[in-house]
Design a binder for these strands. Sequence first.
DNA 1: CGCGTAATGTACGAACTGGTTCGTTAGTCA
DNA 2: TGACTAACGAACCAGTTCGTACATTACGCG
Lengths: 233, 233
Amino acid sequence: MSAAVPQPSPTRDAAPVRTRDAERTRAEILDIATEEFARLGYSGARVDEIAARTRTTKRMIYYYFGGKERLFTAVLERAYARIREAERELDVDQPDPVSAIRRLAELTFDHHEAHPEFIRLVSIENIHEAEHLAASEALTRLNSPAIGVISRILAAGRARGVFTADVDAVDVHAMISAFCFFRVANRHTFGALFDRDLTAEDRRDHYRTMLGDMVIAYLTGAGTGPPSRRGSR
Amino acid sequence: MSAAVPQPSPTRDAAPVRTRDAERTRAEILDIATEEFARLGYSGARVDEIAARTRTTKRMIYYYFGGKERLFTAVLERAYARIREAERELDVDQPDPVSAIRRLAELTFDHHEAHPEFIRLVSIENIHEAEHLAASEALTRLNSPAIGVISRILAAGRARGVFTADVDAVDVHAMISAFCFFRVANRHTFGALFDRDLTAEDRRDHYRTMLGDMVIAYLTGAGTGPPSRRGSR
DNA sequence: CGCGTAATGTACGAACTGGTTCGTTAGTCA
DNA sequence: TGACTAACGAACCAGTTCGTACATTACGCG
């Protein structure tokens, strides 16, 4: 949790010199605030407690962010920015569209697994009907690179005739996200009610494969019509 | 919102006589509390506000429920009980397992659509790591009838050879729930980020069909192995 | 018909909470 | 080097917020 940003050695350099460093202070506030909001929800988190866990004071939270509401928005903004950053490195250069979409699904899966805190923030923001997100110009402008990647894979799959036409990239993204998100976000109630830990380590591979199978089965076999019973392809 | 429970006509029967009725008071508190918790989250909801919206006072909340925490637990218990009640009427007596599982998925879909408030409560409870749910003996004992229904459909499908073996009922339930839950719970952030309203009326049928297609494609076509490219079946 | 108890209402308070006021200090730039 | 400003801290404040003590009333039962 201690900031990794090296001080520009102000006078000495060893010992906790505690020099002034706006950037470090901001970042530290955001770090702690992220934890607290994710752990306790927006209303549950306390500005005083966030301040106390910081090396600075509450005054600084208001100095830099202007209030609890805007602090939460800043937390969201940074969290989303990091996610998008990671997405930008999505490498699904498989020649085969089927392998590509599976790989993308698995990367999404791993990503959700690795960032449960982010998932909590998103859940919290949804409880508040995305009001902070909507208020943030930075966030509404931030387009997801994942959609583009999916689009290209779908196009390639359609071109080769392995994917049925008319599947929308955003919908496929929703489908993949839904599975990944649910597994992490709802693990507590699901675990309590069905006595199954969706995030148990020894089931991770099982669910990752299940997701890939599901998406591929849908894309390669999807037909329409309620009577179903779809033929080969 | 006005309680539908008919008074046992105490003296007169017309006019707001305001007689004592423990059951009605309890129910009214739960109704309002459900709304407030769902709208504002656990910490965001205010006991005073809940009381104010009731025809009774805060005193009664403590008299009947013993505190905010236990009030929320009671809210959850009633909400889950109602859901389970509805599930018990699940009627998926289709002769064909494929039609049956599609129908089950669609019923689940409609159910989520019809009870966004319940979804919010579940999201909130997950933020709190299901601590209230875990503390409630009534809730942990309350098994979902849906699992049994799915089990039977899967067994029938396997017997006829239309479903690949080794699919678990709980996992299928998770898969269906994930899609339905995500669509409702995350509609705000998803809508803001991808400019797509997952719950738009004119897309409902599209998503309902998509869910059914997905589940059926998975069950009828699911294979394993990352290389994929699964043959007919 | 009166008595006991379940049900209910009022008023209050201690602790907390978001936000602010006022003043101090470190760094930097002319 | 000295003045100016960004960065910072302690204490405080007004409005809440959960919870309770105390008083009261309706209703069923003997």
